[in-house]
Nucleic acid binder design. Structure first.
Length: 830
RNA sequence: GCCUGGAUGGUGGAAUAGGUAGACACCCGAGACUUAAAAUCUCGUGAGCCUUAGUGCUCGUGCGAGUUCGAUUCUCGCUCUAGGCACCA
């Protein structure tokens, strides 16, 4: 503690923070084990990529999580609060190449440094559970899970057009392509045909969608984003026979009610039937050339540019199975081969894209759904009519309401074997193959005679080779002959190892479960331990993972359940997506030059101040504008509390039981103390609005400060002051743990603040006995009145009517109405 | 274009089963302490008006309507802004 006892002294955060961090470490204070006698609480923050140093976003994320953890401990929960490292990834390769070292060296050095930084923040982690995902002891289980998924048919290989990032020299999943660019390096992404491994996440599309309804603890925004990403559409699939050929074009539509309005057919340039349709025709070469060109255009297209509708007639026709009508087949650039069936029945009257196409190529427009009270004239229509209406020119369905017609037409199609009800998802299977070195190897073996075989389980893990055979430590596996060469586990003949590594999102898709049993050496997960700890009660992280990581984790949880490793359906019961840390109106980033280094702040103000500010400046879900002066203010507050405690040192020896009769000031402080407990508790419980919790504590401090200033000797109110200070420290302790612990000790409280329970709120003590009633005339505030809390309405109205200020506005008018809101106001209408 | 949020003083933000708008802070201003400065403490601080300077009046929560005794809060129609999705048939 500082030796300077003057009125302007400051607490010595450097010594204090070090002292308590050492005590917590040595005492293994935050290590937990399963305890059936206590309710568990699992709070988790999204673990960081060990990029080198922590940034303000981390500080904010982990401060929020730490308050939750410490608060829940004080409420008596057995709290699991672990931390680890999402350690595979490309930056390690880049750094290794630059420094001519190995990615592991760089990664582990970063982990050591960042762990040190997190410890400096006083975060209450159970460090005994720390995980680094690049450790073979971790990723061996991921390889096992891969094999189990393979055996279950959830993994397959296919040659397909993938997203290729040239700068990262690897494939990306659909979710990792943001606005046509790489999620990591922002370089443009190009399609490329490649062989790769896929997870059948689409098998779980329906469950992933349905279970969103069972996540009331998730922000609506994230739920909506996932729902849209999965993109379920219900409708009809239906085959259109091709005229003069033995094949059919299958279409999917969400508007079966418009099927009588089909005037042409559009297929994608990549449609598998295109070759059959045009083979041998005189326009074959021209059409091929066109199809090739629009595929190339698609790759080159600027992102925000909506291309012009382009198409070419194939010379072939197909028949509408509903009315037998003959319609031309076009290749069109707006039809996506990867969605639905890659072919679209075109109804220009009722679909804007088809409308534009029809206008351009002078194809007929035939309205079949007429909104009541309107007339649709193809000659004058300027856009497609997409609203409901009554069917026309639709055979036996004419006159039907479009909604009813949708069901009826699907029914008709099913009964007559023309088609069937169908559900389509936007979600694609998850491509997990990466052509990079620094990732978990995919544990498969290619044998020319036996095909693809999983690596036998007793040979796991397939460890990343560390030898630098050609001088480069991060040479991709396909360039390492000694890694590739192996024998087939089935026939024993020569075989090749799979050289792709797994998407790093794999590691983060199940780490939260592994934290329940991080050192388990026999299996990926322990039933008893996961049953106790999972699901995660509160998950906290940035909203940028709303789709990627959170969708993959949900998928993995369901897979782990189906593989018998886990007994939960959803990984995260409650999700808090914290806002970004911004400065000067922009997200903190190196390129913008507006970063604030947490290290500097910890040096200058101490961890508690940094934590306090990041909690106080904004509610957690909103963006936080960084303010150097704001940090100053938080520091000032802590020092004020410190000085108050120093100044009242003599009071702490007074008897600690409250006297029966309190004076006005004592009673006021006692009341404020309990009101503060209530407000702080509610702020945390309801929505983790720590900013209002802190402001309530500042108010308590202001009252406390006013009621202690000026009195120097022991007095009757000392017990109330002691109560207020103790409560303030307890309420502060989850946010500023070192400070609270030190002050607790300084006030002479017996034992450490660690392990103390959250203070109880006494409703009786918090009750106001004098109320301020607002007096209004015609809804405008004209006066205020101090009254006893138990006054009746009639008495209140009489006092209001007699009030001097009120008389000025009421005098000479007829009172039409009086409204009394209990404990709040009286409104006189004249 | 579609789906979510958001908009309140010079700034960050409080307050919504409709009931005192601006809590708590930051900045700024004045004062105290100091040879001086920093630190600290005290006071003031939405805008405007006034022959009555007040427990005074008017205006004020993005814009425009509406419901109500009363709207930051509810309804309808807009504007701006952040994020997500986007030729999904």
């Amino acid at each position: 503690m500082t030796s300077d006892n003057t009125a302007s002294s400051k607490y010595d955060f450097k010594t204090i923070e070090k002292k308590w961090q050492t005590l917590w470490d040595d005492g293994q204070t935050y290590q937990v084990t399963e305890d059936d006698s206590r309710e568990k609480y699992y709070v988790l923050e999204m673990f960081p990529y060990p990029s080198g140093r922590i940034h303000m976003g981390h500080v904010r994320n982990y401060s929020i999580g730490d308050v939750v953890a410490r608060y829940k401990r004080m409420r008596g929960y057995n709290v699991l609060h672990p931390m680890g490292w999402d350690a595979f990834g490309l930056p390690a390769e880049n750094a290794a190449q630059k420094n001519n070292s190995h990615p592991a060296t760089w990664t582990y050095a970063n982990i050591d440094y960042m762990r040190h930084q997190l410890r400096q923040l006083g975060l209450s982690y159970d460090w005994s559970r720390e995980i680094a995902t690049c450790n073979p002891k971790y990723y061996r289980w991921e390889q096992l899970l891969f094999i189990e998924m393979f055996r279950r048919g959830l993994v397959y290989q296919k040659i397909t057009t993938v997203n290729w990032c040239e700068s990262c020299r690897t494939v990306l999943a659909n979710e990792q392509v943001i606005d046509g660019a790489c999620w990591r390096c922002d370089a443009p992404v190009y399609p490329r045909k490649m062989n790769g491994w896929f997870f059948k996440i689409t098998n779980y599309a329906e469950e992933l969608l349905d279970d969103l309804d069972r996540l009331p603890g998730w922000p609506e925004k994230v739920v909506t984003m996932q729902r849209n990403w999965i993109g379920k559409s219900t409708g009809l699939t239906c085959d259109f026979p091709v005229e003069g050929a033995d094949c059919r074009i299958s279409i999917f539509t969400t508007r079966p009610d418009t099927i009588f309005g089909v005037t042409f057919m559009s297929i994608a340039a990549e449609h598998p039937l295109l070759d059959t349709l045009i083979a041998g025709t005189e326009k074959e070469a021209e059409i091929r050339e066109f199809a090739g060109r629009i595929q190339i255009d698609k790759q080159r297209r600027a992102l925000d540019e909506e291309p012009e509708k382009l198409g070419i007639f194939t010379g072939r026709y197909c028949l509408n199975p509903f009315n037998g009508k003959r319609v031309p087949i076009y290749v069109a650039n707006f039809v996506l081969v990867e969605y639905g069936t890659g072919a679209v029945m075109a109804v220009p009257a009722h679909d804007q894209r088809d409308f534009e196409f029809a206008k351009k190529y002078s194809l007929p427009i035939e309205p079949v759904v007429i909104p009541p009270g309107t007339k649709l004239d193809p000659a004058t229509m300027e856009q497609a009519s997409v609203v409901p209406g009554l069917l026309a020119n639709s055979g036996t369905f004419s006159g039907m309401d479009s909604l009813a017609a949708q069901a009826a037409i699907i029914l008709h199609a099913t009964a007559n074997h023309l088609g069937a009800a169908h559900i389509t998802y936007r979600l694609r299977d998850w491509g997990i193959s990466r052509q990079r070195y620094w990732g978990a190897p995919i544990p498969m073996i290619h044998c020319d005679s036996c095909g693809v075989q999983p690596v036998p389980e007793d040979e796991l893990p397939v460890v990343l080779p560390e030898d630098t055979e050609t001088g480069s430590s991060c040479l991709p596996l396909h360039q390492r002959p000694s890694f590739i060469t192996t024998t087939c586990p089935k026939c024993g003949g020569p075989a090749r190892r799979e050289t792709d590594t797994m998407d790093t999102f794999m590691e983060s898709s199940w780490y939260f479960a592994r934290f329940a049993c991080p050192r388990l050496a026999e299996r990926p997960l322990d039933h008893g331990k996961t049953a106790y700890w999972l699901p995660v009660d509160q998950y906290i992280g940035g909203v940028e993972h709303a789709i990627l990581h959170l969708l993959y984790s949900r998928f993995f949880t369901k897979v782990l359940r189906d593989l018998g490793h886990l007994a939960v359906d959803e990984p995260f019961t409650n999700l808090l997506t914290q806002g970004m840390v911004i400065k000067d109106g922009a997200k903190m980033s190196k390129s913008k030059g507006n970063v604030v280094d947490p290290n500097d702040l910890i040096q200058e103000y101490g961890a508690d101040t940094v934590r306090l500010f990041s909690l106080f400046a904004a509610p957690p879900e909103r963006d936080l504008e960084w303010s150097a002066q704001g940090v100053e203010g938080s520091s000032r507050f802590l020092n004020r509390v410190y000085r108050l405690i120093l100044a009242n040192h003599h009071q702490f020896r007074a008897p600690q039981t409250l006297p029966l009769e309190l004076g006005a000031s004592g009673k006021g402080l006692h009341r404020k103390t309990h009101q503060t407990i209530k407000r702080v508790t509610e702020s945390i419980e309801q929505n983790f609005h720590f900013n209002t919790a802190i402001s309530a504590m500042m108010e308590l401090f202001n009252v406390l400060s006013a009621s202690t200033s000026g009195n120097s000797g022991d007095n009757a109110e000392a017990p109330v002051v002691c109560e207020a200070i103790s409560v303030l420290l307890l309420l502060l302790s989850p946010m500023v743990p070192h400070f609270a612990a030190e002050m607790w000790e300084l006030t002479g409280n017996s034992g450490s603040i660690e392990g103390r329970r959250w203070p109880e709120f006494d409703a009786e003590a918090a009750r106001e006995d004098l109320l301020t009633i607002v007096l209004q005339v015609n809804g405008k505030v004209r006066s205020r009145l101090q009254v006893a809390a138990d006054i009746d309405d009639e008495g209140l109205i009489q006092m209001a009517l007699a009030d001097d200020n009120m008389v000025k506005f009421i005098d000479g008018m007829a009172v039409k109405k009086t409204i009394v809101v209990k404990k709040k106001l009286v409104n006189i209408v004249v």
